[in-house]
């Protein structure tokens, strides 16, 4: 008990002594781990470069202004490609994610012991591997270009969409499904009358949300050769064309802001 009686007046502490000790120990371990990690990083860091960085940053910023606006002509096509990669990739992901999600949700899966673990494995492996790594593999497999980007975004998004979707399916109101079952509906009828109407808003929200994220991710796929504006960014950086770099960054900023605005509008309209 955190309260104890000493000499007639009751002492109150927030925690028991043992708990307080555990909290302190937790903090101590946490700080120790942090300090240890920090030391290892700092060993691998050339601090001269770090102290020099502000000067470098000013230098770089000076070389970046003004952005080379004429370069915009070259950029329209990559922007279009970037948007396509995100949109088509999201579409592919959704098409695959829906059945995976139904297999992964406890209340709709055909088999808890065989299908569900498989579906969960698909979700985890798709989620743990960054789209850039997917792109890296696909570029080696099917060659550089937009197709690799689209598939990479698709593969990466399956896990994300399926995870959120199956959580939504598991959270549905079961009494509504029971009511449909009570009418003597078949399994597919239960699905379309009891479950689908309930998850529709979540589904739409997830799709738009992922599309928004994918716009951001597809801007960098070009770094490994998978198409989009990242290609221009990569080549501009490697040729030290800083005025082009700054323009590309502005374009990315604008694209992301616009896509965020669009997705917010759509989500608002749906919900």
């Amino acid at each position: 008990m955190p309260t104890q009686k000493i000499a007639g007046s009751r002492i109150w502490h927030r925690r028991t002594t043992a708990k307080q000790f555990a909290v302190w120990l937790g903090w101590l371990t946490g700080i120790a781990i942090f300090v240890y990690c920090w030391r290892l990083i700092s060993e691998k860091t050339i601090w001269f470069f770090v102290t020099d960085a502000p000067k470098q940053a000013v230098d770089m910023a000076e070389r970046m202004v003004p952005p080379k606006w004429s370069y915009m002509e070259v950029l329209w096509a990559p922007i279009w490609d970037t948007i396509n990669i995100a949109t088509l990739g999201t579409m592919i992901a959704i098409v695959i994610a829906v059945p995976v999600a139904f297999c992964a949700a406890r209340n709709t899966t055909p088999s808890v012991h065989f299908v569900r673990p498989a579906a969960l494995f698909i979700i985890v492996s798709s989620r743990s591997i960054n789209s850039l790594i997917w792109a890296l593999m696909l570029v080696t497999l099917i060659g550089p270009g937009i197709l690799a980007g689209v598939i990479a975004i698709g593969l990466r998004s399956i896990g994300f969409c399926a995870k959120l979707l199956y959580e939504a399916i598991e959270e549905i109101d079961h009494s509504q499904v029971e009511a449909v079952i009570a009418t003597g509906a078949t399994r597919s009828q239960q699905l379309s009358f009891g479950i689908v109407p309930q998850i529709m808003p979540a589904f739409a929200g997830i799709s738009v949300f992922r599309w928004d994220i994918n716009i951001r991710e597809s801007t960098v796929l070009g770094l490994v050769g998978a198409g989009g504006i990242g290609l221009q960014l990569d080549s501009s950086i490697s040729t030290l064309a800083w005025t082009q770099v700054s323009l590309i960054l502005l374009v990315i900023l604008a694209t992301v802001i616009v896509s965020e605005w669009v997705s917010a509008k759509i989500r608002h309209a749906i919900i």
Binding site: S9, R10, I11, W12, H13, R14
Partner: peptide
């Protein structure tokens, strides 16, 4: 730190 004066704690009880 939740170290209130003992008089406050007495009053609370």
């Amino acid at each position: 730190l939740r170290k209130f004066p003992q008089s406050d704690i007495d009053e609370a009880f």
